[in-house]
Structure formats: structure tokens, C-alpha cells
């Protein structure tokens, strides 16, 4: 009797519209979040212990009598740069966006310093809590001005290393068409090896540069995902 009634009346879940079923987990999540907020988020927010001070030096510029560091805060707390030490000496400085750098904020620290070409410099940013953020300039050299002629020169260099060798390589096509299969295999093997070396080298250098970027940007993951995306894009075009 009951079994028949069950068969005539489908269960509650089956009678509800699909959108309502989708709403159930969402409303549960909202409820849990509200409860957490109501209880003052126990275990979250208030960290114990001293502040975590992290600054990443994004860019170093050297001009005559001047060292410029662009720093970004990639830690959880604000950082106040109180003093700057260059090679064991306190030095005068100004900060373009203030000495206090909030989370993900950036400021450019301008240091008046008689640096000498070819010498090494160790810069310490002394924070308000007495912590230090160290940055090394292994060999000092003036930073090139970024004018249009600078970019033109860089474009020319790109042509030298990227386009001209490939164009020259194409000129071998008539030659390759006339040689035996054995020789072609040898050339292909050589080319694949060369590309593998370049690929590994580029990946390692990309990871190294990615690691130098503020950690919040996930530089190394970006390199790997970028490579993967490029592969799919090329495969799609092909």
C-alpha cells in the first residue's frame, strides 16, 4: 500500500525545480559564512606575534649620484621604511609614495649616493620595527635611458637574433631537397636537440625571473601556464 503510494507520489527532491536544488548548497555556504562573521571569525584575521614585513625590489635604477629602488609590499602587513643603509652607512633618501607601504602597495625610494661604476653595493632598508630588507647590486653600472632610440636598438637586436638567422636557415631548403634521407634525419635530430636546449634554458630563466617577482603575483606559475597556453594556441592555429 505504502509502496504504491510512494510510486504515485515521487519523492520531494524530484518534485523541486532544478534551480531550487542548485540554490541549496549556495544558501548553506551563505549561512556558514554568516555564522562565521557572527562569531567574529574565530581563528581568522587577528594574527598573533610581530608583523610580517616583506618588500620585493621590483626595479633598480642607477643614475650618477643616485640609486633608485622600486619596492612592492608582498607581505600581509604594512611596512614603514624608516632608514636606508648603503654599504654600512646611513644615507639620505626620499620615497615617492611615502615611507609607509601598504599591502600590495609600491613606492620608489630615491637614494642620494656617490656610487662608483663596477663596484658592489649592499642596500638595507631599515623598517620601523628594526627589521632589514636587503638588496644587492653586484656590479654598479648606469641604467640606460628608455628613450625611443633605446627601444629601436632593442628591436634591431631582436631582428639580429630572431629573424635574420631563421631567414638565412630557410635558404638551405633547396639544398635539403636534394640530399639523402639519412642526412635529413641527421639535420632534423640536430635541430630538435638545439630546440630542446633552447626550450630548457628559456624555461629555467623564465622560472628564475618569475621567482624574483613579488610572490603574490605567482611569477613561476605564470611562466608554466604561459608556456602551456602558448603551446595550445600554436596547436590550435596549426
Amino acid at each position: 500500500m505504502e509502496a504504491r503510494a510512494g510510486a504515485e507520489r515521487p519523492p520531494l527532491v524530484a518534485r523541486l525545480p532544478a534551480w531550487a536544488l542548485g540554490l541549496v548548497p549556495l544558501s548553506l555556504i551563505a549561512g556558514a559564512a554568516a555564522l562565521l562573521a557572527l562569531l567574529g571569525a574565530p581563528g581568522l584575521g587577528d594574527r598573533r606575534g610581530p608583523p610580517v614585513e616583506e618588500l620585493a625590489v621590483e626595479r633598480t635604477v642607477l643614475r650618477p649620484g643616485e640609486i633608485q629602488l622600486t619596492v612592492r609590499n608582498d607581505g600581509p602587513d604594512a611596512v614603514d621604511v624608516a632608514q636606508v643603509i648603503v654599504n654600512d652607512a646611513f644615507v639620505p633618501f626620499t620615497a615617492s609614495d611615502g615611507e609607509s607601504v601598504g599591502r600590495l602597495g609600491a613606492t620608489t625610494i630615491d637614494i642620494g649616493y656617490p656610487w662608483i661604476e663596477g663596484e658592489a653595493y649592499e642596500i638595507s632598508l631599515l623598517t620601523s620595527t628594526g627589521g632589514t630588507i636587503d638588496h644587492e647590486i653586484p656590479v654598479a653600472a648606469e641604467t640606460p635611458e628608455q628613450s625611443s632610440s633605446f627601444f629601436a636598438l632593442m628591436a634591431l637586436l631582436g631582428l639580429y637574433v630572431g629573424v635574420i638567422p631563421v631567414a638565412l636557415g630557410m635558404l638551405w631548403l633547396p639544398f635539403v631537397r636534394r640530399i639523402s634521407q639519412g642526412w635529413i634525419r641527421l639535420l632534423i635530430a640536430f635541430t630538435v636537440g638545439l630546440l630542446t636546449v633552447l626550450g630548457v634554458d628559456a624555461a629555467l630563466e623564465g622560472l628564475e625571473i618569475g621567482a624574483a617577482a613579488p610572490s603574490v603575483f605567482g611569477g613561476q606559475a605564470l611562466v608554466l601556464l604561459g608556456a602551456l597556453a602558448a603551446y595550445f594556441a600554436l596547436a590550435g592555429v596549426d
Binding site: G65, E66, A82, Q83, V84, A89, F90, V91, P92, F93, T94, E99, D110, G112, Y113, P114
Partner: peptide, 19 residues
């Protein structure tokens, strides 16, 4: 009282703190 603050040039003119 810190004329050295933000200065640049050939030498550090004055040994002092910034700020």
C-alpha cells in the same frame, strides 16, 4: 633640520639620519 635629506651628487654631504 636635515638639508642632506634627498640630496644627490658627488658625495654624501652630511652624516645624519633621514626624517
Amino acid at each position: 633640520g636635515h638639508p642632506g635629506h634627498g640630496g644627490s651628487g658627488g658625495a654624501l654631504a652630511h652624516a645624519s639620519f633621514a626624517g
